[in-house]
Design a protein around this nucleic acid. Structure first.
Lengths: 254, 254
DNA sequence: AACTAGTGGTAGACATGTCTATCAAAATAG
DNA sequence: CTATTTTGATAGACATGTCTACCACTAGTT
């Protein structure tokens, strides 16, 4: 019993496998060993033992030589990882203005070490960033100009853009005029863009893990007769939300 | 020759060892195996082989059972790692408002996967952030309020702080009045705070790697008679800069 | 001078994660 | 219905990095 009883937590490599399976499942209807091997650029002989361990951990259900599927637990874990990846990737791309490919590589390398707390903070950063009329896109626009015109000192750059014209005026005022409402305001078939997840604690964590991040487009698929489980879809996957959870998700209609 | 010829690059673990040695050298005059073992919370039997490999890589000079010291190469590599750590830690602490301990933990986990490009972008973020009168501290102040008063939606929060009073007016105007000059303007013994590293390409990378980051306090120790190598000290360590390099470091006098 | 503490080094065990080579099972083709 | 190809699994090698156990210096102490 020297702590080697099917250790309960995922190693970075296993997280990668889980993420890969999740993304493959999203695109194809069937996932097999060689798909994973190709996606991760490893040999299939490396995939087999990884799957075996993931099965032991209850993350995937896998009958030898059959198709591979995530369990409920595995799906949740995978979502969490993908969500972390997305936040990091978007941060490097949208805020720090790295090209999408580099941003993604950066996110790949970092996603395994972002703590729940760090994740939460980054998302708050986005929420504020996207919602605050002064912060985004005016502030971001300045930052980007600073970032691309290397010759100009930030002081000079700032003063110019402070008094001068702003590139994308339409985008600037968009945020101020659009009404921010709860997800409950959406009827079946309607679409909206996530602005803020107001929930706190465990529920917030869960929603973020599932990928409900600022700027994400979602649409309401259907409501239960009582209106309690609300089915939404975003990023190509579906999700059921409790009324209470949906209420805490602030969106703008599109 | 299956690519195992004392592979030239550092693994994360070796980077950790290097970083630890660097930090220990900064504080104590002599570094020994057990100091490293204690700092990294491993057994000394794990330190020995690591040192052997670092010696093979030309990073440390180490005569069995004697004191351990970094070579020139090792010192540079260590600085680079520490610098990455500092930027990440400061980002999580100063921008995302995590407590210093959590921020540091987060940085520890991530520092090994931050690419030079990502590092550069993050530093630019700070440069802009610290220099732009509208961005810092006004924008940051708002963000922090948004971060701490969880009940208020960002829109509301923004409008209040946009039209309402600003907490720290003195800080707000500080950046605008202080003159930003090149490091060359400092005489021996004078101090300044780094605002921006204007250098580009390899030189910029080198300066950032050495820890010349925004908001860092430095002082000029002495100048060579010709004025070419300029000795500065910051973060407890000394450094010689070429005139050209020093010129590209923008600071404010203190 | 010999003993003892404190250090540092080696050997061997283990865990992870990769590979190559090879084998087994299933699917497909002829 | 057999033969070939595709696919997945297994075995064994290697590299990293950790540990425990044990051995070997070195320096004081008596």
């Amino acid at each position: 019993m020297t702590r080697s009883e099917t250790s309960t937590d995922l190693t970075p490599a296993l997280e990668d496998y889980l993420e890969t399976i999740f993304l493959l499942e999203r695109d194809k209807e069937s996932v097999r060993v060689r798909d994973i091997a190709k996606a991760r650029e490893v040999k299939s002989s490396s995939v087999s033992p990884a799957l075996k361990r993931l099965a032991e951990l209850g993350m995937v259900k896998y009958i030898r030589r059959e198709f591979i599927g995530l369990t409920q637990t595995g799906n949740e874990a995978a979502r969490r990882i993908v969500s972390r990846h997305d936040v990091l990737s978007r941060f490097f791309n949208e805020v720090l203005q790295m090209d999408p490919v580099s941003a993604d590589r950066e996110a790949c390398a970092m996603e395994h070490s972002l703590s729940p707390k760090g994740m939460d903070r980054l998302v708050r950063f986005f929420e504020f960033f996207c919602a605050c009329p002064e912060g985004h896109p005016k502030w971001l626009d300045r930052f980007h100009r600073f970032n691309t015109t290397e010759e100009i000192t930030p002081d000079f750059d700032c003063q110019v853009s402070f008094d001068g014209e702003i590139k994308d005026k339409s985008a600037l005022h968009k945020n101020r005029t659009e009404k921010v409402v709860s997800l409950l305001e959406l009827g079946p078939g309607e679409k909206g863009k996530v602005r803020q997840v107001k929930a706190k604690g465990a529920i917030r964590q869960r929603l973020l893990d599932m990928g409900l991040l600022p700027e994400v487009m979602l649409s309401v698929e259907r409501l239960a007769p009582t209106g309690d489980p609300i089915w939404i879809s975003f990023n190509g996957s579906q999700l059921a939300l409790r009324r209470k959870e949906a209420e805490s998700v602030l969106i703008t209609k599109e």
